[in-house]
């Protein structure tokens, strides 16, 4: 039950979105989603579901459900306001930094919560494209190279963790060969691995 007093200070924008969340899913509304994305799990302490309607490759409407703390709720709410009206391309490239910035900042250890919002959105877009039987043109465009020596991207790590192909850091290294040359990326890969394991509850 450790509390860090200084980190409890939420910005007025976070407070507003937490107290008055926008675009939450309501049963009676009977929202017909074209794509649904879900990340996180109840046992992780945060889970998000994003439902999108797509019109002319633009997100015309969005609803969400979040189980989580104030940062998680506020991040999803802010993400929903930002994403509605965005092209699929722009929505796919919406980063946690942009969401956090719009919220006026989050305490450092809460950054994790805003990572889930954009992931759930991307998952919903993936789902939409898959259902529509279309190729996913965005998949590789948002990948960031983590291991420069062997060209391992964050997307690659995410996919391997998500699909359960890399259950341990050692397995991940066996598949991708990350960190086997200069070794500079080891810590970053390890952090990402833990993060993705947490997000996808594997």
């Amino acid at each position: 039950m450790t509390n860090f007093m200084s980190q409890w200070v939420y910005t007025p924008v976070v407070k507003d979105h937490f107290m008055n969340p926008r675009n939450t899913w309501q049963e009676e509304e009977n929202f017909q989603a074209d794509g649904i994305g879900e990340v996180g799990s109840l046992s992780c302490g945060d889970q998000m579901q994003v439902m999108i309607k797509v019109d002319n490759d633009t997100i015309s409407d969005l609803r969400w459900l979040t189980y989580g703390c104030a940062s998680a709720i506020a991040s999803t709410s802010m993400m929903s306001e930002m994403a509605i009206g965005m092209s699929l391309h722009d929505a796919y490239h919406l980063t946690p930094d942009k969401i956090t910035e719009a919220l006026g900042g989050l305490p450092e250890h809460k950054f994790h919560c805003s990572v889930l919002g954009d992931k759930a959105l991307r998952a919903a877009i993936d789902d939409y494209l898959e259902k529509a039987g279309r190729e996913n043109p965005f998949k590789n465009s948002v990948a960031k190279t983590i291991c420069e020596c062997n060209g391992v991207t964050d997307m690659q790590i995410e996919d391997l963790v998500k699909r359960g192909e890399a259950k341990t850091l050692e397995q991940l290294q066996e598949i991708t060969k990350f960190g086997t040359v200069c070794g500079k990326c080891k810590q970053q890969v390890s952090d990402l691995f833990d993060e993705f394991k947490h997000i996808y509850n594997v």
Binding site: M1, N3, F4, G45, Y67, C69, A72, H109, C113
Partner: peptide, 26 residues
């Protein structure tokens, strides 16, 4: 979720504590 409950209660002037991970920084 515990931290959300805690903060909503705090807005009503009720002060409690939670065992939630979100409130712990881990």
């Amino acid at each position: 979720e515990g931290e959300s409950i805690l903060l909503y209660l705090d807005m009503e002037g009720i002060m409690v504590s939670t065992g939630s991970a979100c409130a712990s920084g881990s």
